[in-house]
Amino acid sequence: MANSIKKIGVLTSGGDAPGMNAAIRSVVRTCAFHQIECVGIYRGYEGMIDGDFKALDARSVNHIINKGGTFLKSARSDRFRTKEGRKEAYDQLLKHAVDALVLIGGDGTFTGGMVFNEEYNFPVVGIPGTIDNDIVGTNFTLGYDTALNTVVEAIDKIRDTASSHKRLFFVEVMGRDVGHIALNAGVGSGAEEILVPEEDLGLDRLLESLEKSKHTGKSSSIVVVAEGDKTGKNVFELRDYVEENLEGYDVRVSVLGHMQRGGSPSCFDRVLASRMGVKAVETLIEGKHNVMVGTINNKLELYPIDKAVKGHSKIDEELLRVSDIMST
């Protein structure tokens, strides 16, 4: 297998995450170091079906390590979900003499790569890129650290207003299925309460917590809410419920939304992306594939893609306890 890898394709798929450009840069330059051709596949699997390929060399990726988003662009592909679409993609890879793929993305990206590998035995290696940090087999995904810093900075600014006007703010952050961003950013920003999908706080306990905070002398409060939290139907319902049942608070809602995905990647994400890109290419050179590059206790490890797709990341129970203590 080592001698058969002459050209590697790299793509980004699904939601963008800070650090994706740094990972692309690492893949391209590692290919150049090992004298392997590299092609960028634009618009993810959709671009692979269309043959939207471009040869990349070490100079093609100058000055992108500090850029957010992905210069290869990203798109979701309904066509790739069909056998016909995957056959078109495979034919394009053969046409362009691509021998293996590095896939940068999250659960959906890896699912597509897993199915493609099963059908065509085509070598793929995944690099986890998603701000939600919801991929099993790695302590950190690309973009997670940057997103946390973005959220904490935003909450710090919101707290200035909350304190000035004696307001209660519900701040909604990303996290449809997992609460990693909400929990870590909530602890890091000193939030009075944190609502995550993994722990159903309940409306009564939320009111009890806010009432307790008020009685201890807090004139303003920040409640961080993961978008997938089930305490209420949505963050606006939570606001209405608190306004109806708790006197003395002027309640506001701030939905941070897609700003969490943007921005220049942190140093941590740039370094992680660089390490993962090198590992991904050298894994393919060694003849290994259908795996994801992960980091466990700061060491790069390989993890089967099928297990990464089927697994569920768990919330940090110790940090939940820390959160409870800090909200006293």
Rank of each mutant, 00 (worst) to 15 (best):
H258S: 12
S274A: 15
T283K: 03
P265M: 11
E286V: 03
D240V: 11
P265C: 05
V281F: 01
V242Q: 00
R275L: 14
P265D: 09
S266H: 03
V251Y: 00
P265I: 11
D269L: 09
V255I: 15
A280R: 02
I285R: 05
H258N: 10
R261E: 06
L256S: 03
E286Q: 14
V278E: 04
N245R: 12
R275I: 09
R239L: 08
S264F: 07
R252T: 09
I285A: 04
E237H: 12
N245M: 03
C267P: 12
G248W: 00
Y249L: 11
E244M: 14
V251S: 01
N245V: 04
G277I: 01
L246A: 06
Y241N: 14
V255Q: 06
P265G: 03
R270G: 02
E243S: 13
H258P: 00
R270H: 02
E286P: 05
D250R: 13
G262P: 02
S274V: 10
G263V: 03
L284H: 00
G257Y: 06
L256G: 10
R261N: 07
G262A: 12
H258M: 08
A280K: 01
V281N: 01
A280V: 02
S254I: 05
S254P: 12
E244F: 08
R270Q: 05
E247D: 12
L284S: 00
L284W: 02
D250Y: 11
F236Y: 15
G257L: 07
T283L: 01
L284Q: 05
V281P: 01
G277E: 02
V271C: 07
R239H: 04
V255S: 09
L284G: 00
E282V: 03
L238R: 14
R261H: 08
E237R: 14
M259G: 12
G262L: 08
N245T: 01
F268D: 04
G257D: 10
I285H: 02
S266N: 10
V255D: 06
V271A: 04
V281M: 06
L284D: 03
V253R: 05
L284T: 00
E244A: 15
L272V: 11
G277H: 02
L272H: 06
E247Y: 13
S254K: 08
V281W: 02
S274D: 04
E247L: 14
L256M: 10
S264W: 01
R239S: 11
G248E: 04
D269I: 09
E282H: 00
V251C: 10
S266Y: 08
V281R: 10
V278R: 08
L284A: 00
D269T: 05
G248Q: 04
V253H: 07
E237N: 13
V278S: 04
L256A: 09
E282Y: 03
S274Q: 09
